[in-house]
């Protein structure tokens, strides 16, 4: 029963979701929204599990003075401050929670995002080394696309933006679509395997 019940639930839920895609009539019309709502409710309760797990790990880290335990204190302090600000004054605009969000959280997130520029540079340096024919093709395409996207490119040669557009619209688009078709089929196949109970790894099935 430990395995059969989840398999039955998966099969029924999967079939209902397939049917509701093709049947707009009630009761199928509201099923997707209803399932999404259920998922949101479960997510909210699961968040408690996540928070407990987070606190447990960091309290343990501090109590055992593990490497980097000071950072755990920073994390828990931040957690407490945001929690108190949210519960006491609410998340409305202009309140402490909102102020901390805009003046601490958003700048820190932006900083992490900005690191991407440096990582793109280092990754590009490795990828664009012309060691093989494919890497050389990648290098030439990348230079053409990059130059076509900056004013200097069109200043050097007015046709360069057209070449950049052509690369993006045809070879790049064709490649992306091929990947997308493969992904769509992979999704269908995986979904079928799960719905039909053939894929049971998630139930510890071999």
């Amino acid at each position: 029963m430990k395995k059969e019940v989840p398999l039955i639930i998966t099969f029924v839920a999967g079939m209902i979701m397939i049917v509701q895609y093709f049947v707009p009539h009630w009761p199928f019309s509201n099923l997707q929204q209803m399932f999404n709502n259920w998922f949101l409710i479960i997510t909210v309760f699961a968040l408690i599990l996540g928070i407990l797990n987070l606190l447990k790990n960091h309290i343990e880290k501090v109590s055992r003075r593990r490497k980097g335990w000071l950072y755990s204190i920073v994390l828990m302090t931040g957690f407490m401050i945001m929690g108190v600000a949210g519960f006491v004054w609410g998340p409305a605009e202009g309140r402490p929670f909102d102020w901390i969000y805009w003046h601490a959280h958003v700048p820190m997130s932006s900083t992490m995002f900005a690191l991407l520029a440096f990582f793109v540079a280092s990754a590009s340096y490795r990828a664009f080394r012309a060691r093989t024919a494919e890497a050389t093709l990648l290098l030439v395409s990348a230079i053409l696309v990059m130059m076509s996207r900056v004013p200097l490119g069109s200043y050097m040669w007015s046709q360069l933006p057209l070449i950049g557009d052509w690369i993006m619209s045809y070879p790049n688009m064709a490649g992306q679509r091929a990947i997308m078709i493969g992904i769509a089929l992979g999704v269908v196949s995986t979904s079928l395997r799960i719905i039909l109970g053939i894929e049971r790894t998630y139930l510890s099935g071999k």
Partner: peptide, 26 residues
């Protein structure tokens, strides 16, 4: 693993005929 290869991973790693059948159909 590019796109579909990720969805094929379970079947590929287990080499189970039933799962491989799904891949073939794909």
């Amino acid at each position: 693993l590019i796109g579909e290869e990720m969805f094929a991973a379970s079947a590929y790693l287990s080499k189970e005929p039933l799962l491989l059948g799904g891949l073939k159909g794909q």
